[in-house]
């Protein structure tokens, strides 16, 4: 009797906690979605629950149904810039990360441990510390207001990550398999292409995807390096909506919703690999 009562109390406590967790997390998200998908006038009526649904705000940020379109008033160029810059950053940091990460995981050479630690240091280190010299040096090197400059700066953030993560993934591949390939007469390059790549594809894809996310989500580098609206990326596009004297709430939330979709969906696709990532050393022992 007593046991069943305490079980019931436990059950009720669990469900109440679950509801609190759900509401705590979902409220701000609900508010974004509710604002992005309702008619603009409803926002100013102070309604918490939308009466009508509308796609007007989403269409408006892409310039549909707008009378005046100037550079920067729609989110389209920002989205295009973010996409291609993040793709280049992803590709470069993955290729260099695979090469470097493999060397750090498998090859024996003096200085290897220092380079490994250095890549973790570099990844964990907050980028604010190099904000000033990046701007100063890139001004001298004529890399301000240039996509190349932004890509290089972003690589300072993504490359240490891909190096460290891929090193970890390569370390999980049993050495025996590679040694067997060596004995069968494969050279280093052949072994990597035929044995290591196929075995670590999920890890490489997840790491590349996260490099894309890191690049898409970055605020600091486009903020200090890009002042031309036509070259700007979506994170600063959102900031420009927020800076207006009268914030266009529906547009801001519609743009936020659109800007958050690519990184968030990608994040959920690779989430279980990321979680295994940084703290892996501690769990695995």
């Amino acid at each position: 009797m007593k046991r069943s009562t305490s079980l019931l109390i436990k059950k009720i406590a669990i469900y109440i906690s679950a509801i609190i967790v759900f509401v705590w997390t979902a409220l701000p998200l609900y508010w974004m979605i509710a604002t992005a998908f309702r008619p603009e006038r409803e926002i100013y009526e102070g309604l918490v629950i939308p009466k009508q649904l509308s796609l007007n705000s989403i269409l408006a940020i892409f310039g549909f149904g707008e009378e005046y379109i100037t550079v920067g008033s729609t989110i389209t160029p920002y989205m295009i810039n973010s996409t291609y810059i993040s793709i280049i950053v992803m590709v470069v940091s993955t290729i260099l990360g695979v090469l470097g990460g493999y060397a750090l995981a498998r090859m024996r050479f003096p200085g290897k441990d220092i380079l490994s630690s250095l890549s973790l240091f570099a990844y964990v280190f907050p980028t604010v510390v190099i904000m000033v010299p990046i701007f100063y040096l890139f001004s001298m090197w004529k890399l301000v207001n240039s996509p190349t400059g932004l890509i290089l700066a972003l690589l300072s953030h993504t490359l240490p990550y891909t190096l460290w993560m891929l090193r970890g993934f390569f370390q999980t591949i049993p050495v025996d398999i590679e040694e067997a390939a060596f004995i069968d007469g494969c050279n280093r390059i052949k072994t990597i292409i035929r044995i290591v790549f196929p075995l670590s594809t999920p890890g490489i894809v997840a790491t590349a995807t996260y490099a894309f996310i890191l690049s898409w989500n970055n605020v600091l580098f486009p903020l200090i390096l890009i002042s031309r609206t036509d070259l700007q990326v979506v994170s600063i596009g959102i900031l420009n909506y927020m800076k207006a004297d009268f914030v266009p709430w529906d547009r801001l939330m519609a743009a936020s919703f659109v800007a958050t979709l690519p990184p968030t969906l990608l994040f959920f696709a690779i989430q279980r690999y990321i979680v295994a990532g940084l703290t892996a050393g501690a769990v695995k022992r």
Binding site: V21, F22, T25, A26, L27, P28, L29, Y30, W31, M32, T35, I43, Y44, G46, V48, W216, N217, V219, S235, I238, L239, Y241, M242, V247, W249, L252, M253, A255, S256, A259, T260, P263, T264, F267, F268, Q271
Partner: peptide, 29 residues
């Protein structure tokens, strides 16, 4: 659990925009 993980997947700049509106004095939730 899926909902509880969402904030991790959202970019910081969107989180900022989100709460800018959530915290708005007159119209925020």
């Amino acid at each position: 659990r899926t909902v509880a993980v969402i904030p991790w997947g959202i970019p910081l700049f969107v989180v900022a925009a989100l709460f800018f509106w959530f915290f708005d004095y007159n119209l925020g939730l």
